[in-house]
Amino acid sequence: MQLIKAALISSTVFMVMVLPAHAAESSKKTGYGDNPNIFEVLGQKTLDTAQDAANAVDRTTQEGIAKVRPKVAETWQGTKTYSEEQAEIAKENSQKAAATVNKKWHEAKASVLGDPNSPPAPIESRPLSQPNNAPAQNGQL
């Protein structure tokens, strides 16, 4: 793509430099005349050749752009679609992660502070003179 841009810019610059000289030269003479100077003939032929080359470069550049444009548009559309899909996946994953973090937070809070829905732990009282070697009854001390 950069090669096409460089060719287009260089051909444009070349044409901008050559066209005023060509217009000034062609306004002086329409042909070579009866006895033309060899340098005028060579200059005119060089100018014509350069103009033809610039036109060929321009035509080739336009054809190349016409061939590349649909592929670039298709690639761009594919990139946009892929980006949208990845954004949707990332959004879903972040929502799942947020739900997991929230669940873990509530579990940790319940384990530290206790579950408000469960009954409080039973408090057992015994006289101090009684030994503490009695087996626990019903899971209580």
Rank of each mutant, 00 (worst) to 15 (best):
M1C: 12
M1E: 14
Q2G: 00
Q2P: 01
Q2Y: 05
Q2T: 11
L3G: 02
L3P: 06
I4H: 00
K5D: 10
K5G: 13
A7Y: 00
L8G: 09
L8T: 13
S11G: 02
T12Y: 02
F14R: 15
V16C: 01
V18F: 07
L19A: 11
P20H: 06
S26L: 14
S26D: 14
S27V: 03
K28C: 02
T30V: 13
G33V: 03
D34Q: 07
P36Q: 01
P36F: 05
N37H: 14
I38C: 06
F39A: 04
F39N: 08
F39E: 07
E40V: 05
E40R: 12
E40A: 04
L42K: 15
L42Y: 15
K45I: 03
T46A: 14
D48L: 13
A50R: 08
Q51M: 11
D52F: 08
A53H: 13
N55M: 10
V57R: 00
V57W: 07
R59F: 14
Q62N: 14
E63L: 08
I65N: 04
I65E: 04
I65T: 02
I65R: 01
A66H: 05
V68Y: 14
P70K: 01
P70C: 04
V72H: 02
Q77C: 07
G78H: 10
K80L: 12
T81Q: 12
Y82P: 11
Y82A: 15
Y82V: 15
E84G: 08
A87W: 05
E88W: 11
N93T: 00
N93P: 02
N93R: 09
S94D: 13
S94K: 09
S94E: 15
Q95A: 12
A98P: 01
T100L: 01
T100R: 02
V101G: 01
N102E: 05
K104H: 05
K104I: 09
H106F: 03
A108P: 00
S111A: 01
V112P: 00
L113V: 07
L113Q: 11
L113N: 14
G114I: 00
D115G: 02
D115I: 08
P116W: 05
S118A: 11
S118C: 02
P119L: 09
P119F: 06
A121K: 08
A121I: 06
R126S: 00
L128Y: 07
L128Q: 10
P131V: 03
P131R: 12
N133T: 04
P135S: 12
A136L: 07
Q137G: 07
Q137V: 13
Q137K: 08
G139V: 01
G139R: 01
